[in-house]
């Protein structure tokens, strides 16, 4: 048994374009340094993989990897590897190359990069953590990098000796420790209401819904969720939550469930994941 009586701390910082909340229980003497280490890990992911920061590794890839292979950090390579795997398994229902559509809609900032013409198949991962684009691409690791950041923060908490904790990056969250955490799923048609409750034990949960990003565009409504094959916006009052062992996988699989049709079941099974679809009526999810 530990000789201290544990305490808990809850902190929140604006990171990854959202509010990141970290709750930890553990040894009072070490708890503040555990929280700092967790936020440091998230800041590191932001520095490497931010779409909005022209100096990030991701931005450098987008500028240069169509011309020659670019060597990246181990963390960036891990996320790109997962992105490529899930894109392949879902036949592009998850596709990290739809950014040009979001840029055209004004949802992502313009980067002045080459005209991107390729898709996820053109992302080549080579030996020695080198990355090359077969055709010009504009990669955006937004959601999957956010999930990875949550995983890194949880690993940092664990390494710092936290007993239990929860990291929540704007709805992408992961619990660690012996207990169960209760998580509410927001009603996508009326975000003031909680529509469903889930329990998490050493697991992650991520949600995709157009609730707050939906807006009117010149040719109909837009949102940050793009159906990769047609590049159409998802604007239905639907939300998809995925519970998975890691938050990186959970976030990417929300798109597989939204857009993967019949393939979604198999990809969820491959990752030991489950999905919760909230909608007013059974949806014919895009095939």
């Amino acid at each position: 048994m530990s000789s201290y009586s544990s305490t808990s701390v809850c902190r929140c910082r604006p990171l990854l374009g959202t509010f990141v909340e970290i709750t930890v229980r553990g040894d009072p003497a070490r708890i503040e340094s555990a929280v700092s280490a967790a936020f440091d890990a998230i800041e590191r992911v932001q520095r490497l993989m931010s779409f909005h920061d022209p100096a990030s590794e991701l931005s450098q890839l987008n500028r240069r990897a169509a011309k020659r292979p670019v060597t990246v950090d181990d963390w960036t390579f891990q996320v790109l590897t997962a992105a490529k795997e899930i894109a392949t398994a879902s036949d592009g229902a998850f596709d990290p190359t739809v950014a040009p559509t979001l840029q055209r809609w004004g949802i992502l900032p313009s980067t002045g990069a080459d005209i991107a013409s390729g898709d996820w198949r053109d992302l080549e991962l080579l030996a020695g953590r080198r990355v090359r684009f077969r055709r010009p691409l504009t990669l955006d690791l937004g959601g999957i990098a956010k999930g990875f950041a949550v995983d890194c923060a949880v690993a940092a908490l664990r390494a710092a000796g936290a007993e239990s904790g929860l990291v929540n990056a704007g709805g992408d969250l992961r619990a660690l420790g012996p207990g169960e955490e209760t998580v509410q799923l927001r009603d996508p048609q009326s975000p003031g209401r909680m529509a469903h409750e889930l329990r998490l034990h050493e697991a992650a949960l991520a949600t995709s819904a157009p609730t707050f990003s939906r807006r009117a565009g010149p040719d109909g409504d837009l949102s940050h969720l793009v159906h990769p094959p047609t590049r159409a916006a998802l604007v239905d009052g639907v939300s998809v939550s995925v519970r998975a062992p890691t938050c990186m996988v959970a976030d990417a699989l929300t798109k597989v469930v939204l857009f993967g049709g019949q393939l979604a079941e198999a990809v969820l099974a491959l990752h030991g994941a489950e999905a919760f679809v909230l909608a007013a009526a059974p949806l014919p999810l895009a095939a």
Binding site: G17, T18, F19, L166, N168, G170, G171, D172, L173, E181, T182, V183, Q184, L185, R186, P188, P191, M194, L198, L205, A206, T207, A209, P210, T211, F212, S213, S239, S241
Partner: peptide, 8 residues
Amino acid sequence: NVSGATLS
């Protein structure tokens, strides 16, 4: 803990 649409 709420999972859902993200606030910026």
